[in-house]
Design a protein around this nucleic acid. Structure first.
Length: 518
RNA sequence: GGCCCCAUAGUCUAGUGGUCUAUGACACCAGCCUUUCAAGCUGGAGACCCGGGUUCGAUCCCCGGUGGGGUCACCA
């Protein structure tokens, strides 16, 4: 008798023979008895004595969909919170050759977000390899084991026009091995599969509906469901946390666990993430890829915070959490069952909150990067330029909510002139304002000191001189200097634009904008 | 269509068989602050999908309906 796959046996894959499984095994046997006759699996939430081992198992598609990122995040939060192991496994059985860039997109995305893995590409681990394309022999071994036992059979029917029931080519158990061009089918035992999903609750499926599904395709590669179970078992995965689009794969997988004499993992199926229009999130929504957000200057801790809030909520009323707090607060059994829509406004809000927690220097570095990218500064590492950027970012304060925004709010600091849109001309139309503006330009140039106090004094006293309130002069100055009605404190703005340049911009603005009727 | 899942404000959500007159956040509106905007503070508007049943009492439990979603591959 060969027990390659038994939980207690010596597995050629895992190499561990852990007798501590005995306790839970007994309890589960009891549960099984209760649901006699049916293929039933009821996990024992809360008393699982195994170490938590979870995995994120993406297929390398070339980019990181935010839905997948959220799945990775929940796995990671759970692992970190339970002192467990987080595994990264690449499901590339379908990929003809190893696509390095596609794998890089995954690892770089995770690293950027701050998700690290204990086993997987780059770090190894004792349950490797962690690329399915390198585990093909293992799937064949497992499939042959099932064929030998009569739990699966070799099928050489052509794929076209064939449903499993019509395939009559089942051999006697153990008769021979699969040869080139043949598929291996699972012999569906029928009955029902009942299991308790940590998120979705108790679920029940009729097994017959899945037919005799394929384990090994005729080209020799394993199907998703089969490779998944073989790997999850070999890697001792204790909890399978994945999107709920896999819900109906679960009974198939549990059947496989059972016929392989393995203890199924516990399952937690996460609800979908939808676009802001309620449709499935896709490229069409502009930002379905993690890199879209990274490129626009959203910061990882905010992204993580927001993603964690999709389908899950912490206890209490505070949802502004850093990664450490998320790990602390995260509970798998508090995950919701219904889909949620992705809301960029909330993300933006959280991003600005997390930005405020970053030291000025870091915010300035972010700004420098985007200014350089937009071609507004030559060299983002230049010290003088950086010192200036720091002052601008400081002045902008909470207005600077994510990286890309610096171009809009701060771009004019790096230009000689600004162009004033017609709808802002009214700020510069009145004669008394124009005269006062002209006067302040002169006074900037002749001032003996140059600081914000001096600037404020010039503006307020000039306003008085022309019998104006300070506000219209202030507003006119802002438009003349920045071509905007919003921005930092005006006196800071003048100071940062600089003495000569402020004077030049004011005069240029008066030239550019024709006087209007008072 | 079969199977499966889901249903609290525009969005993300908390919540319980009875002070639920339903929690918090984003967005929205108003006020305060202020030179503008942002931020902040204060206040405001805004929701338990529908119909039955169980119950003294249902947002909560059960059934049905409706709506939404997932899945039905030799894709993952």
């Amino acid at each position: 008798m060969s027990i390659y796959w038994g939980t207690f046996g010596v597995s050629p894959l895992g190499g561990l023979d852990d007798l501590s499984f005995t306790y839970v095994e007994k309890l589960r046997a009891k549960e099984r008895e209760k649901s006699r006759g049916e293929t039933s699996y009821l996990p024992l939430i809360g008393i699982h004595p195994l170490n938590v081992r979870v995995r994120f198992a993406p297929s390398p598609t070339g980019y990181m969909h935010v839905g997948n990122v959220r799945t990775a995040l929940f796995n990671w939060l759970f692992a970190r919170g339970e002192d467990g192991i987080f595994i990264l496994r690449i499901e590339d059985t379908d990929v003809k050759r190893h696509v390095q860039e596609a794998v890089d997109a995954i690892t770089e995305g995770l690293q950027w977000l701050g998700i690290d893995w204990d086993e997987g590409p780059g770090v190894g681990g004792e349950f490797g390899p962690y690329f399915q394309s390198e585990r093909i022999d293992l799937y064949h071994q497992a499939a042959q084991e099932l064929v030998d036992r009569g739990a699966a059979y070799i099928c050489r029917c052509t794929a076209e026009g064939l449903d499993a029931d019509a395939c009559t080519c089942g051999e006697k158990p153990g008769e021979r091995a699969r040869s080139e061009g043949e598929a291996v089918r699972f012999r569906n035992p029928g009955g029902r599969t009942i299991f308790e999903d940590i998120v979705q609750g108790k679920l029940s499926f009729e097994n017959d509906q899945f037919g005799d599904f394929i384990l090994i395709k005729s080209d020799g590669t394993p199907t998703y469901n089969f490779a998944n179970v073989v790997d999850d078992n070999a890697m001792r995965v204790s909890h399978v946390i994945r999107g709920d689009d896999h819900l109906s794969n679960t009974p198939r997988q549990i059947m496989l666990y059972e016929t392989l004499d393995c203890e199924p993992a516990e399952f937690a199926h996460l609800p979908q993430i939808l676009g802001d229009d309620g449709d499935r999130l896709s490229k069409r929504h502009g930002a379905a890829s993690l890199s879209d957000f990274r490129d626009r200057g959203f910061i990882p801790e905010a992204m993580m915070n927001y993603l964690a809030l999709l389908g899950w909520a912490p206890e209490g009323e505070n949802d502004f959490l850093n990664p450490e707090q998320l790990i602390d607060a995260f509970r798998l059994d508090r995950v919701r069952q219904s889909a949620s829509q992705f809301n960029q406004q909330k993300l933006t809000h959280l991003n600005s909150q997390h930005m405020e927690n970053r030291p000025l220097r870091q915010r300035a570095e972010i700004a420098a990067k985007y200014l350089a990218r937009a071609g507004m500064i030559e060299d983002e590492t230049d010290n003088d330029a950086f010192a200036y950027i720091e002052k601008i970012v400081e002045a902008l304060g909470s207005r600077f909510k994510y990286g890309e925004q610096i171009v809009e709010y701060g771009g004019h600091f790096f230009a000689e002139n600004v162009s004033i849109d017609a709808d802002l001309h009214s700020y510069l139309a009145k004669d008394d304002v124009r005269d006062a503006l002209s006067r302040t330009a002169d006074r900037y140039e002749t001032a003996t000191t140059w600081d914000e106090e001096t600037i404020e004094d010039i503006i307020r006293s000039t306003a008085e001189e022309f019998d104006l309130k300070a506000a219209p002069l202030i507003h006119g100055t802002r438009v003349a200097l920045s071509a905007k009605t919003v921005g930092p404190s005006l006196f800071t703005l003048v100071y940062l634009v600089g003495r000569e340049r402020s004077a030049r911009r004011i005069r240029a603005a008066l030239d550019q904008v024709p006087p209007g009727k008072n």
